[in-house]
């Protein structure tokens, strides 16, 4: 029986059809079919695709499924939980302090539009200055800090209303 796998990685929407049989699995993604045989030992999965062997480590936490393969790691997030992947308590439109530190400058103003990557504010922590940028296009709803403020890890700094809701087009 074929089933649809829906996951998110780094803001990208991934869909594939997967079907299992004894020791084997078939993945169909974008009309391309990949057949693999596999063996699973706890967190380690050995896959053979077209005669090439891959070894992957997998583990789950509250943020999603972590997969590591040849030194690259992917955090794959189930549908509907994309916000959880951005960090401990972050909702998709909340910019929170990544470290305990001090606000050096604030570029964002409530009501302003922001494009993905636009500078919102700069905080200074342990070793350096961090520029916090808009994770996606949107409108600044609230700036919850001011220049010179000491901020704690996880403290809300800016709220951003995304201009388009992701995932409605599939």
């Amino acid at each position: 029986m074929s089933r649809r796998l829906v996951l998110h990685w780094s803001g990208k929407h991934l869909e594939a059809d997967v079907s299992f049989r004894d020791g084997g699995v078939t993945l169909t993604r974008d009309a391309a079919k990949v057949e693999a045989s596999y063996r699973r030992e706890g967190a380690w999965i050995t896959l053979t695709i077209g005669g090439v062997t891959h070894r992957a480590a997998v583990a789950k936490d509250a943020r999603g499924l972590w997969v590591s393969c040849r030194g690259r790691t992917w955090l794959l997030v189930p549908e509907g939980r994309e916000g959880a992947a951005r960090g401990s308590a972050d909702a998709p439109d909340e910019i929170r302090a990544p470290m305990t530190g001090r606000v050096v400058s604030v570029a964002a103003r409530a009501g302003d539009g922001a494009r993905e990557g636009d500078l919102l504010l700069t905080i200074e922590a342990m070793k350096m200055e961090f520029k916090l940028t808009a994770p996606e296009d949107g409108v600044v709803l609230e700036v919850a800090c001011a220049e010179g403020d000491r901020v704690d890890l996880g403290q809300l700094l800016v709220r951003l209303k995304p201009s388009a809701v992701e995932g409605e087009t599939a």
Binding site: L27, A36, R40, H54, L76
Partner: peptide
């Protein structure tokens, strides 16, 4: 593919 397959498994 191998990472997505590992995830599926």
């Amino acid at each position: 593919d191998e990472a997505l397959l590992a995830a599926a498994i």
